[in-house]
Simulated scan of single mutants.
Amino acid sequence: MKLIGWNCQGAGKDLDNSNKMEFLARLMNSTGVQVTFLSETRSSRYNSSHLNSRFNTAGSFVVPSTGFSGGLWLLWSDEVRVSINFSNQYLILAVVGHIHTNVDFALACVYGDPHHRHTRMIWEQISTFVNDNLGKPLVFLGDMNELMSEADTTFRLM
């Protein structure tokens, strides 16, 4: 199984004339990736049909940005089936099944709250999803924007 996760920091104004999106299309094609997750697309202009057409994917799911902030895209090939369990501006939680091997796994695609106002809610959603899918392998893709300790909040010069 091949997966890509990328915080693209903006998809650009045009899917066909963006260096980032051209790079992504080439990467997806050359690697034969089955699942691709993009965070921080900063776009609400594109829907699933735009993405499927541009990236030659079998399916996709879009969480639009809020203004110029956020935005999540999940794209997949015809080698997998995807069932979205939950989504919001920070998460796409899905069960993915590989068609040829008939193996299912839980997929948590995360773009954590950069301001840490909703961190607890994000972790609660992930925890519920994990508990609902016990026994399945779990894959996390994304940017947690998570502080693990007080040391993460300070920079130390040596």
Score class of each variant (00 low, 15 high):
G10N: 10
G70Y: 13
I92A: 00
K20D: 04
S43Q: 08
M1D: 06
D104A: 02
F61E: 05
N88K: 01
I99G: 04
M158N: 13
V110S: 02
M158P: 08
R156I: 09
S44K: 01
G142W: 07
S18G: 11
N145Y: 10
F37H: 04
T41F: 09
E124V: 03
N85D: 03
I99S: 09
H98T: 05
S30P: 11
N7W: 09
M21R: 01
T153Y: 02
N17H: 13
L74M: 13
S127F: 12
R42M: 07
A58G: 15
L138K: 05
F61Y: 15
P64V: 00
F129H: 04
V110A: 00
S83C: 14
R42I: 07
R81L: 12
D16M: 08
V139E: 03
L15I: 12
T66H: 13
F140E: 08
F68I: 02
L72C: 10
L51Y: 12
N52W: 02
V103I: 14
D143C: 10
A58Q: 15
L24F: 11
H98C: 08
T36K: 04
A58E: 14
E79N: 15
R42K: 15
F129Q: 03
R117T: 10
F105Q: 01
V80D: 11
T57Y: 06
V139Q: 07
F86G: 04
T154N: 09
D113R: 13
R81W: 01
R156V: 06
E124H: 12
E79T: 11
E146H: 13
M158H: 14
G112K: 00
S87Y: 11
T36L: 04
W123D: 06
K136G: 02
Q9M: 09
T66K: 13
T57V: 07
M28W: 15
E150V: 09
N88E: 02
H115P: 00
E150F: 08
L74A: 06
A94Q: 03
C8L: 09
W73E: 08
T66N: 14
F105E: 00
H118C: 06
Q34H: 15
D132R: 01
S18Y: 00
T154D: 09
H118M: 02
T154R: 11
I4L: 13
I4W: 10
A58T: 10
Q89D: 08
N85W: 01
F37Y: 11
Y90R: 00
K20L: 05
W6P: 06
S87H: 14
C8G: 09
R26H: 08
A106I: 04
D16N: 07
H100W: 09
L141I: 08
E150C: 13
G97R: 03
R42C: 09
G112C: 00
M158E: 05
R26N: 10
M1Y: 06
R156P: 05
D113H: 15
N56M: 03
H98G: 03
M148W: 08
A25S: 15
W73C: 10
D16K: 08
V35M: 05
V82A: 11
L147F: 11
